[in-house]
Amino acid sequence: MHKLAPLFDQLNTIILGKPEVTKLAVVCVLARGHLLLEDIPGVGKTTLSHALAALLGMPYKRVQFTSDLLPTDIIGVTIFDTQSKKFHFKKGPLFTSILLADEINRATPKTQSALLQAMEEQNVSVEGKQLPLSNPFFVIATQNPLEQSGTFPLPESQLDRFLMRLSLGYPSEQFERRLLLGDNVKTEIKPLFEASEVAAMVESVNEVHASEAVVHYLQTLLAHTRSSGLFVNGLSPRAGLQWLQAAKALAYVEGRDTVLPDDIKSLATVTAAHRLHCNDGSDSIDALRQIVDNVEVL
């Protein structure tokens, strides 16, 4: 039995009827990627992110993003200690392993970019000094669909830093009934792993083998996003790297030591769709499916 099985058991009792989403969320974390949960309010985004952070046994902090949130509110602030007559830096919520950024698109671009620098560089600059963040460092952000009012949409360059974008969607009828009947009794969430265990798992994802044939398939897909003319810009090499890493993590979660084309294929929409913008403004998920359907895999 896979050592991740208890994690999925727990997660699926908290988030009912969404085993695929919970699996992908775990894959995202194991692939050292930041996760963006995008959905309408009230479907369990925050619940999922909380549960994931708690179960993995990693220190986590939660920040509710609002339009008046300032960069110092997440990075921290230097204050003057009257007792010691010295300045010292009071670390903000950023200095943790998992940062839950709730409703990230409600904050102003200034605050968003402060967070996103940290996501990319794994450290922050405070008063000219580079302060390292904890290792590993994950951001699990949630956001409302862009059509909602009072939001500042994330620019493409920042969306590109999220490994995956997941959405939960409405629960099915059966699970909604169980939810309403109170089947998912909220018990105390106990961490299942030590922080070091998670680090070890993240490390072993790197050992999953990706054959040349799989890389070729991935490369063909990347090339198609660039040459098809459907998108404003094709996928970046970073997107390709992250996609492959996610595929490795998926193989690891499924207990395999090699990446299969199926891994690549099934991750296409969650790892690539949020980075692409259709020329004609239509949904990039559909366009991406169209591309996947046009690439031969053997």
Partner: peptide, 9 residues
């Protein structure tokens, strides 16, 4: 087999 279908599918 559709060209885009993986062997597993």
């Amino acid at each position: 087999k559709r060209p885009s279908e993986t062997p597993l599918e």
